[in-house]
Amino acid sequence: MGTSEYAIECASISKSYGKVKALQELSFSVKKGEIFGFIGPDGAGKTTLFRILTTLLLPDTGTALVDGLDVVKDYKALRRILGYMPGRFSLYQDLTVEENLQFFAGIFQADIRENYYLIRDIYEQIAPFAKRKAGKLSGGMKQKLALSCALIHKPVVLVLDEPTTGVDAVSRREFWEMLIRLKNDGITIVVATPYMDEATLCDRVALIQHGRILATDTPQAITNAFPWQLFEVKSTDTLNMINLLKQHPEVHNADMFGETVHVSVKPGRISADDLFSYLQEHGHLQSEIIQGNPGIEDCFIDLMRMTNE
């Protein structure tokens, strides 16, 4: 067991595939016992980073310690304490639920009964299908089985690469409930997700894009650092309204958010009423404007635009 307060410490990790720079000078640390989320779109470098953390890839430069073990030098020791769920469903589709679990317990020389308490809540949901082949399970069920298999040897650090991608909203919510329970059992969890709304479920997050970290902090601190004032505007002709709002001199940006448009402006320069009358002048008689609070997605978009500029 490492003695530091960090489960993972990464210092200027870089990795390139030929000309493509997948990761550029990534540094971050994950505290023991927290859920740390990497939030970013496909191609941001999440999978590459996770493969480095799980000893599957060598970084070009930089060092990474997981539970005090070097991912390059101490890979053998590290592989005993890692739980890993790759992005693709990677269980044996032709083996049954039960056989998969037994197999993974076997290769880690773990005792299913001893560690069952860890997976009980998860596994009991799929236990009725114990004799069913893994390939015949629904998306949500596969997810649960994969998580059970990744947990059966009681890992110190659990690395989950996009566990909720392509999973429907209900299963996603259930999956996160399970992660929070595991965290309470003392497991450090690193999770990647393209869904911005999942950020608030993490203790801390790193927003990642084009192989760079845009920001690392608690979700609350990230949204607090949003430099603009935000209004939520509702109207009928959304597209037209967005273009209109973008032309307003005080408006920094306007983006669709579900049925509303989030308008970011320099703080304290204009009020909701000012915007309302501006829209009214330009034909949007029925708009509805309220002060809004930025979410992670607002921050992500803003940070993305900043780095792109």
Binding site: G40, P41, D42, A44, E162, T165, G166, P194, M196, Q209, D255, M256, E297, F300, I301, M304, R305
Partner: peptide, 9 residues
Amino acid sequence: GGVDPITRR
């Protein structure tokens, strides 16, 4: 699926 929030919009 998996597309960044700006591109999504």
